[in-house]
Design a protein around this nucleic acid. Structure first.
Lengths: 122, 122
DNA sequence: ACCATGCATAACAATCGAGTTATGTAACTC
DNA sequence: GAGTTACATAACTCGATTGTTATGCATGGT
C-alpha cells in the first residue's frame, strides 16, 4: 500500500465516530471484541465490521486468546496522517492578518495567488 | 455542527486524494475552480462536487470574482483533526518495548488491559 | 459428549460516494 | 443582444459503506 492509498484508508477509518471511540478505548490497552462493542447500541457483527476497517487501515492488530480476539492499537498510520496535517500547521496557527500577509508574499514571489476579495454576506 | 460531526466531515473530506491535492494547491494561495481542476483527468462537475465537500467540511471558502469562484483554504478544521491525532502521539512515538512497558503500567494501574499475547505467524 | 461463549461470515437492504453527461445561469466581451 | 466563459445543478449509474438478522465455528467449561 503506497502512501496516498494508506492516507485514504487512514482518514476514511477515522471519519466515523464509532471507530474513533474504539481507537480511544484501545489507547488504554488491549480489549476484546465484546468489550469494544459494549458501549455502542449496535449489533456485534457491526462492531466486527468496524474492526475489520480499522485492521485493513493498519490501525489495529488482532491477536488470539482462546475464543477471544484481543485487539491492539497500531498507531503508525496515525503518524502518517499527522505528518500530512503538519504541512498545514502554519496555516491554522496564524492569525488572519498574518495569513493575508503570507498570501501576499506568495503572490509577490510569482505564485498565481489571487487578490483577496471582498467577503459577501455569507 | 458539534465536534464529533465536524471531525467526521473533516476526516471524510481528507480521505480522498483529489481533495487532499486540492488543499495542497490551495495552501499556495487562492485558485479558481478551473485552475483547481486542471491537474485532474476528471470532469468539471466532479471537481465542483469535491469543492462542495470541502466547503461543507469548512475546509474552504468560496469568494466571487466576476464569473470566477476563487477558493481559499480554511485551515481551522485541520487544527481540530490535528488535536484529535495529538492524543495518540505518544503511542506512535514510542518504540515497541516502551509501548509494552506502558501497557503493563496501565494494567498495573487497574486498567482492564490484557496480557500481551504471542504473535502468530501473520 | 454437550452446551455456552466469543466471534466471524453470509446474505440482504438502505444509504452514500464519486463519477458521468446534459443543461442551466451569471457575468464578461464584442 | 449574441456568444463565450466559468461555473453550478440535475439526473443518472454504479460500486462501496453501514447497518441488519441468521448462521457457522472454534474453543472452553462441566
Amino acid at each position: 500500500m503506497n502512501t496516498p492509498a494508506r492516507l485514504d484508508a487512514t482518514f476514511a477509518a477515522l471519519a466515523d465516530p464509532t471507530r474513533r471511540a474504539i481507537l480511544a478505548r484501545l489507547a488504554l490497552g488491549e480489549a476484546t471484541v465484546g468489550e469494544l462493542g459494549e458501549p455502542f447500541a449496535m449489533s456485534q457483527p457491526a462492531i466486527s465490521k468496524h474492526l475489520r476497517v480499522l485492521e485493513l487501515a493498519g490501525l489495529i492488530r488482532r491477536g488470539r486468546d482462546a475464543q477471544r480476539r484481543p485487539c491492539r492499537i497500531e498507531a503508525a498510520p496515525l503518524a502518517e496522517a499527522n505528518a500530512w496535517l503538519e504541512r498545514y500547521r502554519q496555516l491554522w496557527e496564524m492569525r488572519f492578518d498574518d495569513l493575508d500577509r503570507l498570501l501576499d508574499e506568495m503572490k509577490a514571489a510569482g505564485k498565481p495567488a489571487r487578490k483577496p476579495r471582498v467577503r459577501r454576506k455569507s
